[in-house]
Design a protein around this nucleic acid. Structure first.
Length: 272
DNA sequence: AAATTATACAACCGCCGCATT
DNA sequence: CAATGCGGCGGTTGTATAATT
């Protein structure tokens, strides 16, 4: 039995044009993946990881070349603020940029400019006390996207969705998903996605946790989907005491509506 | 103009979680 | 169950190029 990577005289270092061509042809023919098979298929004297890396970071035609645009830089900073050195996650939000690109860009262009002690996120800033519950701002979706979302829930066999309304005068509603039962949402259009991220990126420190939490609970509406009909159940917490509210929030893992405002996958990553 | 130092980034290394044996 | 293999990740580094002296 052969130990991993122990085969004799495997090529290392910079890739030649010939090697690139061989690898490209191999992936055109067999598709991406099955990296352990690639070296023999392509006729390359390289280990599988080297081949994978070369494709993912350089040869893949989806990779965006050239300098980072201003909005890309802004996103990197904000996402790094939120997530730390989770390069793969960050790159997932920057179309065409690889995790390696983002990491390199951070290390060479941004690292020294960002003072860690100025980071507003207590999770990533040792000089700040870590509150029990860290909560991003709730997302805001437009009213007309709501039915779409319910349809999506039905398709996904999602049993319960919860939603909260902002002030009656508002055109917006706050939408949340229960991560406990694995539900997730499809965001109906790009503007909603952008709005969601703008809200997510807001400085968490500016939020008055207590009062906002309370407001969310007071405005809470549970929406259950059974068959074709959404069942709307209003929850009135207006007379509930602060201590009771706190219990409710703590029961709910992260504070009721708040983690729900995150993309569920991202939240799971965030919480690891 | 040559020598040097600094920068950018492609690629490597070791580790991880998961699947298979 | 342990051992092994795999894809994937993030920290780090070797080196070509750019900038400076």
């Amino acid at each position: 039995m052969e130990m991993e990577g122990s085969s004799l005289s495997v090529r290392k270092g910079a890739w030649t044009e010939e090697e690139d061509i061989l690898l490209k042809k191999c992936i055109e023919k067999y598709g991406e993946g099955k990296w352990h098979k690639v070296p023999s298929r392509a006729g390359l004297n390289r280990c599988r990881k080297s081949c994978r890396l070369r494709w993912l970071n350089y040869l893949n035609p989806n990779i965006k070349r050239g300098a980072f645009a201003a909005d890309e830089v802004d996103l990197v900073i904000r996402l790094h603020n939120l997530l730390g050195n989770r390069w793969s996650l960050i790159a997932g939000r920057l179309p065409g940029r690889t995790a390696n690109d983002v990491k390199n860009y951070w290390n060479t262009h941004l690292k020294k400019k960002v003072d860690p002690s100025s980071n507003p996120n207590p999770r990533l800033n040792p000089s700040k006390p870590n509150p029990k519950v860290i909560r991003p701002r709730p997302q805001i979706l437009s009213n007309n996207s709501f039915p779409v979302m319910l349809e999506e829930n039905k398709k996904n066999n999602t049993a319960v969705a919860a939603a909260a309304a902002t002030t009656p005068a508002s055109n917006n509603i706050l939408v949340s998903a229960n991560s406990g039962n694995g539900s997730s949402y499809c965001f109906p259009n790009e503007n909603d996605e952008i709005t969601r991220w703008e809200n997510l990126m807001m400085n968490e420190n500016e939020v008055d946790f207590q009062s906002e939490q309370r407001q969310n609970l007071i405005n809470n509406i549970n929406i259950s989907v059974f068959g074709d009909q959404p069942i709307i159940e209003e929850m009135d917490y207006s007379t509930t005491s602060n201590s009771q509210l706190l219990e409710l929030v703590e029961e709910d893992n992260y504070g009721n509506l708040d983690e729900l405002s995150l993309d569920v996958d991202l939240w799971n990553e965030f919480e690891q």
